[in-house]
Amino acid sequence: MKKPFSPFGELGLIEQIRRDFATTGSAVKLGIGDDCAILRPPSGCEVLVTTDFTLEGRHFRRDSHPPESVGHRCLARGLSDLAAMGATPLAAFLSLALPSTMLAEAAGRAWTTRFFNGLRALAELHAVPLAGGDTSESPGGKQALILADIVLIGSAPKGKALRRSGAFPGDALYVTGQLGGAAAELATLLGRRKRIINLKTTDDHPHLFPEPRLDVGEALLRRGLATACLDISDGLSTDLAHLCRASGVNAEIEQEALPIHPLAGKLDAQAALHAALHGGEDYELLFTAPSSVTMPSSLAGVPLTRIGTLKARRTAQPLMTLLAPDGSRTELKPGGWEHFSKPTKTEKKTPR
């Protein structure tokens, strides 16, 4: 026997999402309401798909992260993946599992509304329609957690999408924006005794409200500036290692060239360097370009900084090297985030 419609139940939630997320004038021919969505990819383009989990206790904490931030970050993770390949977003799909009490209690309904407010604000900024998804009750009773999975569909001209494997020895290495801010803000957030109530989203919040570099990625692709690209989600050191292995090159980073975020700059020098190299979740772009290319100082209003050079792969040499201000060189090992890795004694379980 079917349950009657309730404005506070699953059907009510879906109806509210349908009303709040318009799909007119987009690549979505048919959106929320049928068994499948129907998309219209642009002519001459390939379709790109990415998916990302947002898990309570792993990527956010309900007692410290504002709901708007959780919704924003849920979508930003997928948008950053599209940006890394120079893609244009077409549609988003969200699967959301909530504890049974969330829609039954006023506080839970308020949290859910604010979550969607954060997600919708970023979606509207980048004209990304929410074309469908799924809702469910998460298991665990009173201990149940919030689980979200976002799927992003994008498009790029056939054969032109930026990849990790296109770099060459001699290419220059660049990053967008600044590094270490997300890790520094997260440390401050977790150190607070009180939850953030009123947050000015117009301020710079690299962890709570990261800015996916979609316009930069599209410009790099359109102008043919980059040979390889990926986003810095797991930390510069870890993501650079991915690029080096995919392209078959070694890399040297110039420590003095690293653009340190002001929040990380408030830390001592060693902690700031660690945040910039290993902190993760900056969602900036890490890309390569031929040294002969004259790179602009910024794209789409975002600063670009040359931070190093790629070299020919030599098995006897470290995959990555850090060049210190005094001219000494040390091996740079991947020190960012990796799921399923065994934490060291000094590591703390924090949202990623």
Rank of each mutant, 00 (worst) to 15 (best):
R109A: 10
S95A: 14
T54S: 15
R58G: 08
H59Q: 12
R77A: 15
R77N: 08
V70T: 08
E46V: 14
T51Q: 14
T54L: 00
A76L: 03
R77K: 13
M85I: 15
C45Q: 11
L96T: 07
M102Q: 08
S69H: 03
A83M: 04
P67D: 01
G71R: 04
L98I: 12
T54F: 05
G108I: 08
D52R: 14
A92K: 02
L96M: 03
P66K: 03
G108Y: 08
V49G: 11
L94P: 06
G57K: 02
R73E: 03
L94R: 07
A76Q: 01
D52A: 14
A92S: 14
G78T: 00
A110G: 10
L98F: 01
D52Y: 14
W111M: 05
P67G: 01
A104Q: 11
F116I: 02
H72D: 08
L90W: 04
M102F: 11
H59T: 04
R58S: 13
E56L: 07
E105P: 10
A83C: 03
A106I: 12
V47I: 11
E46F: 15
G108A: 05
H65M: 05
L94V: 04
D52E: 11
A110K: 06
R73M: 07
V49K: 15
T50C: 15
L75C: 07
S80F: 06
R109I: 00
P89K: 02
T113Y: 02
A106H: 08
V47D: 00
E56Y: 06
L55D: 10
P66A: 02
L103M: 07
D52V: 14
T113I: 11
H65W: 13
A83V: 05
L90P: 06
S64H: 13
L55H: 11
L48K: 13
E68I: 04
R114H: 06
A106D: 09
D52F: 11
A91T: 01
A91Y: 02
V49D: 10
G108K: 01
L75I: 04
F93Q: 08
F115V: 01
P99T: 11
F60V: 03
A107K: 07
R73N: 01
F116A: 00
G86L: 04
G78A: 00
T88G: 08
A104M: 12
L96W: 14
T50N: 15
M85S: 13
A91D: 00
P99N: 07
F93D: 07
S95I: 12
T112K: 05
L94W: 07
P42D: 10
F115N: 00
M102G: 05
G86Y: 05
A87L: 10
T101V: 10
A83Y: 07
E68R: 01
G44T: 02
F93P: 10
L82V: 04
L82E: 04
P67I: 03
A107W: 14
R77V: 09
H59M: 13
D81A: 15
W111G: 03
F116N: 00
V47K: 08
H72G: 06
A84R: 02
F115P: 03
G108L: 03
R58P: 08
P67T: 05
F116R: 05
R58Y: 06
E46K: 03
S69D: 02
